[in-house]
Design a protein around this nucleic acid. Structure first.
Lengths: 180, 180
DNA sequence: TGTACATCAGTGAACGCGCGTTCACTGATGTAC
DNA sequence: TGTACATCAGTGAACGCGCGTTCACTGATGTAC
């Protein structure tokens, strides 16, 4: 049955949000359109009213998922690093950093998804640059790029490890290397 | 037809090598058993004589792919970082670092694959620790963990970026942050 | 050393399942008068 | 404002394809004598 325009817009947002959560939690290939639509409270057939294809959804969900965290610019650099490399972030993929969950897979996706992730990364780096250590703007930008590479890499390796003590050690080493 | 024992061992090695290459190049889900067996010069049916399942192959191919690079311990820390973060490594997934290609996906794999990757990471860190900067053993170990997180993270983000100048900037920033 | 035969690695067709995608249909929305 | 109807978002069944897995068969290997 037809639904109101407001409902259409809300349904679309729900699909994007469900996709962004599920993709981060399980990876792009493991999530089916059925999974996404069910979590959004709709049925499979409605999907193609909103998106051209699964690839299209992936690209748009990436754009949705990489919106920089609210209030990132109000945290100190040390606080941001510590919360990024916390055990709770490591253990919560669904709501966590999209780069740590998906950057590696997006590497092999069509350009649209790569482009959305790249734009999100640029914005995140710009925000981090404001609070990054360094005496010059270009020094702070360099520090921001190196820092996000580090914390994302550290989080991925900590999630990969099946040895809990080693996983904690990876998080801790990266915090200490960045905040001195 | 039956083949000699030597041939069996060689076939198995070929399958593992093909799998390790293809998985790094295209990701775990995108590679089919047909792809792997064809690249190894065999047909699909022979697969189950060597491995229990695709999951079993993934775990064993990970063990094969994470063997630390030959001669890692003979390179200076700065040289290793520079070659890891080179454009040629960024552009060659098939023969490149297995962690950068697959760590993120392995995060969601069964324990066997995660375990093999974890063991490989521990070995790599041990080797890197010898040449890492720092005045104490524990300081060098910390530096090695932080460094591999950084360079792996930087390589992933550089591969993800669809903007070539930005991709180069990411590589460069990570080199500079690590070698001062 | 030579021969006969049991073993078993590899072949290629077949199976079954799940997934992305399509489509005829439904019924609430919202517009024309 | 009220009514009649065209629109179209969502439904759920169906389709087709590709993949992991199985299996009856083949023929070279390697062992027993």
């Amino acid at each position: 049955m037809k639904v109101s325009k407001d409902q259409v817009a809300e349904n679309r947002r729900n699909v994007l949000q469900s996709a962004a959560r599920l993709f981060r939690e399980r990876g792009l290939d493991a999530v089916t359109l059925d999974d996404v639509m069910k979590e959004a409270g709709l049925t499979r057939g409605a999907f193609y009213g909103h998106f051209k294809s699964k690839n299209d959804l992936v690209a748009q969900a990436m754009a949705y998922a990489v919106k920089p965290t609210e209030g990132l610019e109000n945290q100190t650099f040390a606080d941001y690093v510590a919360s990024y490399l916390s055990a709770s972030h490591r253990d919560d993929r669904a709501e966590g950093c999209a780069f740590a969950s998906l950057a590696s897979e997006v590497t092999r996706q069509p350009q649209a998804a790569r482009h959305e992730m790249t734009e999100g990364l640029k914005q995140t780096i710009n925000l981090m640059t404001a609070n990054a250590p360094g005496s010059t703007p270009s020094g702070r930008r360099l520090a921001a790029i190196a820092a996000i590479s580090s914390i994302m890499g550290g989080l991925i390796l900590a999630r990969m490890s099946d040895d809990p003590a080693f996983s904690d050690e990876i998080l801790d080493a990266n915090v200490r290397a960045l905040v001195d």
